[in-house]
């Protein structure tokens, strides 16, 4: 086809990626808005291998071209992820938008990426010379920047099953009830055994970048949940101190206050 490649296998796609500058196209929902002049696309939307949701002993695998609607109907996808993607835009966007696109787009407001961060997700990147399997933390550099190689494609995201099974907390605030980009969103998953925190994650949209403050999370591990709940404000403050709110459309003050409130609410809700 003119100005486009439409491979039917991942192998083929990777080869094209290796030898051309074609822009990977999965769902089109962000890409087409950018209106890139003289674009040549590498269409990934009909590659079956990229459209599978599977599991092995350790991970749930979500193919890069899986749409949000597809994932919402799949029993393997964990509830935290479902809750996050169920509030992306509106049905027509969820029907087209994909996990690979959401991640590769390097937006700091990608709802599926937020859930992925909370669940210790990894991404599998493939190229003609091999593949890499790296945590989201390493993949997302900052707003607008990932460390994907020029010859690499996102093949799938991997969600650790042990994390997927944990209780979680999720909240999204957009500008309206639908068709809304997250102004602030919060996702966290945790494990409490015998009243003691065994594992905990906490991550937000609103800071201007995706990250995990693992050293602060670590200070909570081994703590009694009663004690953390009772001192939620103080513990939340440890996270907030670390955060640098990058200027955006919504005021820093708003984002900071709401992120703080949600941290407190999260920690107070642990059980």
């Amino acid at each position: 086809m003119v100005n486009g490649y439409k491979p039917t296998t991942l192998q083929e796609a990777v080869e094209i990626k290796g030898r051309t500058d074609a822009i990977p196209y999965a769902g089109g929902t962000d890409l087409m808005v950018k209106n890139i002049p003289d674009a040549v696309y590498l269409f990934l939307n009909d590659i079956d291998e990229l459209k599978q949701i599977t599991q092995d002993d350790e991970y749930i695998h979500i193919g890069a071209a899986v749409t949000f609607t597809q994932a919402l109907a799949d029993d393997l996808v964990p509830p935290l992820m479902k809750e996050a993607i169920s509030r992306i835009a509106a049905p027509a966007i969820r029907n087209a938008g994909t996990f690979g696109g959401n991640l590769g787009n390097a937006s700091d407001k990608a709802d599926s990426v937020l859930a992925g961060f909370a669940l210790d997700a990894r991404v599998r990147l493939v190229s003609v010379s091999g593949e890499r399997n790296i945590p989201f933390d390493d993949f997302c550099v900052r707003r607008g920047v990932t460390n994907i190689g020029d010859d690499e494609l996102i093949a799938e995201i991997l969600l650790p099953k042990e994390k997927c099974a944990l209780p979680y907390y999720y909240k999204k605030i957009g500008g309206r009830s639908a068709l809304a980009i997250s102004r602030v969103a919060f996702a966290g998953a945790y494990e409490v055994r015998d009243g003691v925190i065994q594992a905990i994650s906490a991550t937000v949209i609103g800071e201007g970048k995706f990250t995990r403050y693992r050293e602060v999370e670590a200070t909570l591990i081994g703590k009694k949940v009663d004690e953390v709940r009772a001192n939620a404000d103080e513990y939340a403050e440890r996270f907030i101190e670390k955060m640098t709110f990058i200027r955006g459309r919504v005021s820093t003050e708003y984002r900071k206050v709401v992120v703080t409130n949600l941290f407190k609410d999260y920690l107070a809700s642990l059980e």
């Binding site: 509106a90 500008g175 309206r176 009830s177 639908a178 068709l179 809304a180 980009i181 459309r249």
Partner: peptide
């Protein structure tokens, strides 16, 4: 339409 928001059917 991303920055000027009008009510949707859910608002």
């Amino acid at each position: 339409f991303t920055d000027y928001l009008v009510p949707t059917s859910m608002d």
